[in-house]
Amino acid sequence: MSFIWMVVRVIVVFAVGMTFVPILIWMERKVVAGFQVRVGPNRVGPWGMAQPLADAVKLMMKEDITPAGADKYLYYLAPILSIVPASLALAVIPAGPTPWARITDLDHSLLYSLALSSVSVYAVTLAGWSSNNKYSLMGGLRSSAQMISYELGMGLSIIALLMLTQTLSLRQIVEQQHMYGWNIFRAPTVFIAFIVYMICGIAETNRAPFDLAEAESELVAGFHTEYSSFKFAIFFMSEYVNMVIVSALATTLFFGGWSGPGVSYPIDATGHLQIDPTLIPMALLGIVYFLIKVFFFLFLYMWLRATLPRLRYDQLMNFGWKTLVPVSLANIFIMGIYLAVHNGWFTS
């Protein structure tokens, strides 16, 4: 019985993740249109809402091309490698307070999601390599260098946060924030960690202004130049799912996840939250808060995309290694001092 329950939850969370994709495609097209003083799609369905459906049908009708000289095995593997880690990372996101709002609760779920985000580097690199196209190869090389560099900054920025939370479990991180307030307000250095995390998250998902791997104007879409039809759609989907994951992690780590006014659970004697799974409306309210926060960050993604020009490659590397890494290292140090002062280690 519990196995069936598990399967149902996997299907539901996967379906929700995939449902984000058409919503985001529509939202991105509308939001970017607004930023560019245009109207955006408005012919298919109300406010053009059926446009992603039309796009999907168009993509599936297209011819599925494998270029001559492509490394066929890797060429087919790359899109799978990009969508699978993206979907797996959704499993640990605590979308709501109750157990049914997440698939699984690992003790090290943050580490797990970071590990999965590293795997998606392989997808981009292999896609660029296996296409037998020099632009794709350049895109793949750029993205492997970029993602490895920015992963470092991201990991270091999260370490500063972990010193505060003392746990890697996303569930516990949210419950702490429910009790003590959002992490972003708990210590001054967390804000710096958040900025670094968000910049690295955008770079990790290869989005503008860090979309060096795609770089339409220089590399003709980079690593997915040669991909067409559904394989291209899969790359597209995983990009959006990765955006959702980065936004969901930002919400969970810094902005209190599902916590918000109206969602309140008692704290028991041992200092843990007593979450009553029978309070369905409260849990749903928590999910709504979570979604609002996630969509704010998704909007931020589009806002940045519509505003900032793409960085040059050397600027990107300089920024990653000479700014973000030292800043997050210093942030860890400052966080240590802050915690020492805060916990009274110097006075006792």
Binding site: F35, V37, V39, W303, T307
Partner: peptide, 20 residues
């Protein structure tokens, strides 16, 4: 720059700034 683009986005979405 972000403020400038947001201003135009709001003007386009909720006002009649759109040039379409």
């Amino acid at each position: 720059g972000m403020g400038r683009t947001l201003k135009h986005a709001i003007g386009t979405t909720f006002g009649d700034e759109s040039i379409t």
